[in-house]
């Protein structure tokens, strides 16, 4: 049996009257890749924000390796290894690529010396394949490379759980293939991954399991084939035609 890394117990978060996330329970195991899908505004980003301490849940619990971490601050989540990339990339614009990545190693991994953190950074800059840009400011990277930088920075934090919030949005198909391979490589390191993604192809290729949010509620959870055949999911998110096409592609 593989060990449980993260558990959500009836997690909820409201903003004023809006219930962005309600009664979500879910378990993440070591090394698995879980797809998180749902229409825009269904609460995917809010769920990640609750797990990483950005938002305090209004009800429910977040449990990480058996420890109740519901009330943690973002920096504590980072130091624990609950790491995420942002839907809108968040670099330190005037720092070099290497320094950006070093920040992850220096603070989340609590590496004490700056030069050690920079050495560590090189490792991850190489891993995601942006070593040629190591010494230029993050602001001058292309979008695809900025997304790789986000990945490298998160990896430098030595994550136990990595939450990828639409890392592929805005990339062309060639770039997406590169990103897919990268995510697979990351998963092979034993890091559990929650991937938020609109491209069903990506989700179907990567995920071992899929969970579906709709209006903040978890409406389905299961294997990819189960999900694309789930009538509720088809109604709320995929649509009849698209679900059929996905099935056919899967059978081919």
């Amino acid at each position: 049996m593989t060990s449980t890394v993260l558990e959500l117990h009836s997690l909820a978060r409201s903003f004023g009257g809006i219930k962005a996330v309600q009664d979500v329970s879910f378990t993440l195991r070591k090394g698995e890749i879980v797809g998180l899908i749902g229409p825009n505004g269904s609460g995917k980003t809010t769920l990640v924000n609750c797990i990483t301490g950005v938002h305090k849940p209004t009800a429910g619990k977040v449990v990480f390796y058996g420890e109740d971490v519901t009330k943690q601050k973002p920096h504590q989540a980072a130091q624990r290894g609950l790491c995420r990339t942002f839907q809108i990339v968040q670099p330190f614009p005037e720092m070099t690529v290497r320094e950006n990545v070093a920040a992850g190693a220096l603070f989340a991994q609590k590496i004490n010396s700056l030069s050690k953190a920079l050495d560590k950074a090189d490792e991850y800059v190489n891993f995601v394949g942006i070593h040629e840009m190591a010494d230029i400011p993050a602001a001058s990277l292309t979008l695809a490379n900025r997304k790789k930088l986000e990945l490298a920075k998160s990896l430098a934090m030595d994550p136990k759980v990595l939450m990828l919030d639409e890392v592929n949005a805005g990339l062309n198909s060639g770039e997406i293939i590169g990103a897919l391979n990268l995510i697979k490589k990351i998963s092979q390191k034993g890091i559990s991954i929650i991937i938020i993604e609109h491209l069903m192809k990506v989700i179907m290729t990567l995920s071992e399991r899929i969970i579906v949010l709709h209006n903040g509620e978890l409406i389905a959870e299961g294997l990819p084939t189960e999900i694309i055949n789930n009538p509720q999911v088809i109604k709320a998110y995929l649509g009849e035609k698209f679900a059929k096409r996905l099935m056919e592609e899967k059978n081919d």
Partner: peptide, 26 residues
């Protein structure tokens, strides 16, 4: 400036939310 404190402060200056997210107790 040669210490992690200074590095952390530079991160805060450039993007405080991201600084928080890489584990800096801002």
């Amino acid at each position: 400036s040669n210490n992690r404190l200074g590095f952390g402060l530079k991160c805060i200056k450039q993007n405080e939310d991201a600084a928080n997210m890489v584990g800096i107790n801002t």
